[in-house]
Amino acid sequence: MKSIINYFKEILFGLKSLVKGMAVTGHYITHPKEIITQQYPENRESLKMFERFRGEVVLLHDENNEHKCTGCTACEVACPNGSIEIIPKRVEIDGRKVKAIDQFVYHLQMCTMCGLCIPACPTDAIVMANTFEHAVFDRSKLTKILNKPGSKIMDGIK
């Protein structure tokens, strides 16, 4: 007799647990306001990354097309995967030959966004930008030259 009661108890308990589970999902289907989906390309305007988000390395230029990079290669040394490559050149300033950057090459395809290059820079020339739409059709487009054509180093940065 006891086993029969247990048998029916088991069934009722099982059914109850199932109904409880259905109540949870039932709650969500009746509350469409709680939907969490964000429709990405449509919400581009309102989508804002957090300020610390690491998207890609950029070399800051001011309005006179001047940057702060001295070509010291500290970031190149700090980078664990060789994403940064600095090609130096010699320029003549006040009759002295000074080392400066010819090209600041940044391989986005190798970058792991660890952010180690940023604190390594002694002149705060580079920052991590918030951009995240990096998809391109050609791999070669991922290799970027960060210093703009014709840009030169700011005065007083050594």
Binding site: I36, M49, F50, R52, F53, R54, M113, C114, G115, M128
Partner: peptide, 19 residues
């Protein structure tokens, strides 16, 4: 989990590989 990754993103700068 999304709420936690938001916390990470704001403080650490990345959602998964925070470093």
């Amino acid at each position: 989990r999304e709420m936690i990754t938001d916390i990470f993103e704001e403080t650490c700068g990345a959602r998964l590989t925070m470093n």
